[in-house]
């Protein structure tokens, strides 16, 4: 097996590997065997994941297998639909075929959330610099992805926009950089500070409104094998017009909220407990309230400066 960049593979090879279910995407700690015959999904993948590593060879040991396909034969031709099939039964609403990229992204998320058995997964974004990692916990409408994308512009490395992946043995956070999913108003916000060419076309009419993706950066992929030690945990709260505010949280409260956000904490059991407790021993947690991205960046920078390197 050898690793090549997706963009180094000729389009017809990518098409063949995808139709055979043998496109082995090697990203962070996971290898995913991808399978699709849908041209829209293929285009999205070759564009957004162009710098990603692909394992080339006859057979690979994979963590996940994901097929993006029509829900049944009829829907391959009439009012075409598409679903993500992660290889285990999971009820999902079929989407119109033009939302194939969303299916792919959601399917990849589902694989990590429900089929990681070596790492504890928490619903949060993670960025880092040489000091360590910042965990940005997910809250509905909290602005996790916008803040993550904004911190990427401030020199932070992206580990993951969707998952804090905690290694059960080392209590370090692992990187699994993927395109950052942006919803509705945050699409335009990120287009402004990251540049329009860094954001994908908009998918309209999804179950979550409009969605676009902030592109993967080559630098994040190149450092994806470097774990980070968590130093700061943030619970962001976006409130239109709100004055910026910071409140220190009890670590116990942060622990409770993180456990409640984990799709596999109970499955991993005792190693997840140990790893989480060890991670939390070295961190501070804050709730931050803000009304716009500039304010959120200012708050995070202040907090980060106070953190020991």
């Amino acid at each position: 097996m050898k690793n090549v960049a997706l963009s180094d593979l000729p389009p017809e090879t990518v098409k063949r590997l995808l139709s055979e279910g043998r496109l082995y995407l090697h990203l962070g700690p996971y290898v995913t065997a991808l399978s699709t015959k849908d041209a829209g999904v293929r285009e999205f993948l070759t564009d957004m994941y162009q710098d990603c590593s692909i394992l080339v060879g006859e057979e690979a040991l994979v963590d996940f297998s994901l097929e993006v396909r029509a829900p049944n034969l009829v829907r391959r031709y009439i009012r075409r639909q598409i679903v993500a099939d992660p290889g285990f039964y999971f009820p999902a609403v079929p989407l119109p075929v033009k939302l194939g990229p969303l299916c792919l992204e959601m399917g990849m998320n589902l694989c990590v959330a429900l089929q990681s058995f070596r790492q504890a997964i928490f619903h949060a974004g993670v960025v880092s610099d040489q000091k360590g990692g910042i965990v940005i916990a997910a809250r509905s409408g909290g602005g996790k992805s916008t803040l993550t994308a904004a911190l990427m512009e401030e020199g932070f490395r992206l580990l993951s926009d969707e998952f804090a992946i905690l290694c059960a043995e080392t209590s370090f956070l692992l990187a699994y950089p993927r395109p950052v999913s942006l919803k509705n108003q945050s699409i335009d916000v990120v287009r402004v500070f990251a540049g329009a060419d860094q954001v994908s076309d908009r998918l309209t009419g999804t179950p979550k409104g409009d969605i676009a993706y902030r592109r993967l950066r080559k630098s994040d992929l190149e450092t994806a094998n470097l774990p980070a030690k968590a130093k700061l945990i943030l619970f962001p709260r976006f409130q239109a017009e709100a004055a910026p505010a910071v409140e220190k949280m009890d670590i116990a409260d942060a622990a409770m909220q993180l456990i409640a956000s984990s799709p596999n904490y109970q499955v991993i059991g005792e190693p997840a407990f140990h790893a989480l407790m060890q991670m939390l021993d070295g961190v501070e947690a804050y709730e931050i309230t803000y009304g716009n991205t500039e304010d959120s960046l200012m708050l995070v920078k202040d907090l980060w400066e106070a953190v020991d390197g």
Binding site: I259, Q266, G269
Partner: peptide, 16 residues
């Protein structure tokens, strides 16, 4: 323990 709060993992039930 974190301050006054103690997290207890119950090996028998797998519950925290």
């Amino acid at each position: 323990s974190f301050g006054d709060t103690t997290f207890v993992y119950n090996r028998q039930s797998g519950t925290t």
